Amino acid sequence: MTYEKQGAAALDYFPCRYAGSKHSFRGPRSQLDGDYVAFLGGTDTYGRFIPRPFPALVGDRLGLTCANLGWMNAGADAFLNDPGVLAAARGARAVVLQVPGAQNMSNRYYAVHPRRNDRFVEASFLMRRVFPGTDFTEFHFTRHLLSTLAQDAPERFAILVAELQFAWVARISELIRQIERPVLLLWFADHAPRDASGMDHVGADPLFVTPEMIAALKPAPVEVIDATVSPAALARGTEGMVFSEIEAPAASEVMGPAAHAEAAERIIAHLADVLALQG
């Protein structure tokens, strides 16, 4: 692994902005006036602690501009609420959308911050009815909220999970519809897509997402890319990452460069076919 002392030179993300968006993205800034592929996703797409995340690796191999429009902990709401991102996606030849978890978006039970989607904002009247006696002022992040509810009220928690899954299908379908370009859905996780069993707790991302939910998307993505990380890549952990000692716990929770390299190879195989069909 690679450590950088706190306060010393660390990984430069070259933060940049795109027209119509208030958010800062990872750079260098891509030129969006020609052929390019847009990458939408969360922390892994952004590539925190990763010198060359998979959007950059794909661009290197294909010799094509790959605009990294990922940001930390983003859910569907982050993109649907950002006109600049939607405009950039609509101008792309194709869009690679990393599958987000179902927890970081507003729904009938709770609201999240419109840009920082992992931030819990408030519980709805319905949420307070289903979980009476819960002091929601104690929660600031969706994972903390859901972990507590899963432990304290498992039967009622299942009702909440069903709502999140229903909302996810609706919201991702709307995002694909608004993009209006070929969308390749990327499953980038330490486990393969699995059914609804084991949804009674807060596990690994993409949280609560099942193959049935992906199959229910309308319009459907043109491709679903399974980039489940291999045991060999997972075993390499934080090797090749750049982070300070204080950031080590956070670095251990994201995919490492070996996983990004695997994802890039799988994306390239599918993306090359989609681009070739466009002529």
Rank of each mutant, 00 (worst) to 15 (best):
R171C: 08
S21W: 08
P154W: 13
L149N: 06
P219W: 05
F54E: 13
V96T: 11
L184R: 07
G256L: 09
L217P: 09
R181V: 02
P28G: 03
A87N: 01
E4L: 13
A232D: 01
G20P: 11
S230V: 04
P219L: 04
E4S: 14
R26M: 06
V85D: 00
L69C: 04
A263C: 13
T65E: 09
R236Y: 03
Y36L: 06
L126I: 13
R61S: 15
L40F: 10
D152F: 03
A269P: 00
P154D: 12
L32N: 03
R266W: 10
S197N: 02
T65I: 11
A94C: 02
A67K: 08
A227D: 08
A19R: 11
R194K: 08
D135A: 11
V130I: 14
R236V: 09
L69K: 02
L160E: 05
E247A: 13
P51H: 08
A167C: 09
Y3W: 13
V222Y: 01
G91W: 09
Q151F: 12
A78D: 01
F49V: 08
V85I: 11
P55N: 07
T134L: 15
Y46R: 13
L234Q: 13
F39D: 14
R116N: 12
D273R: 14
V95C: 08
F54L: 12
T228I: 02
D60K: 12
V161E: 02
A67D: 06
A78P: 01
R177A: 12
A250M: 10
E174V: 09
D77I: 05
G101E: 03
T148G: 00
G47T: 14
D200L: 15
C66E: 04
L69D: 03
R119K: 12
D33A: 00
E239G: 12
G101S: 03
L62F: 04
A227R: 13
A276K: 07
P132G: 11
A67P: 08
A88Q: 00
A74W: 10
A111K: 15
P55L: 06
F39N: 13
M199I: 06
A258E: 09
Y3V: 14
E247F: 01
D82N: 08
S24N: 15
A264M: 10
A89G: 05
M105H: 15
G70P: 03
P53T: 07
R17C: 04
K218A: 06
F120V: 03
L146V: 09
L62S: 02
A227S: 09
R181C: 02
L275W: 05
G63W: 01
G198L: 08
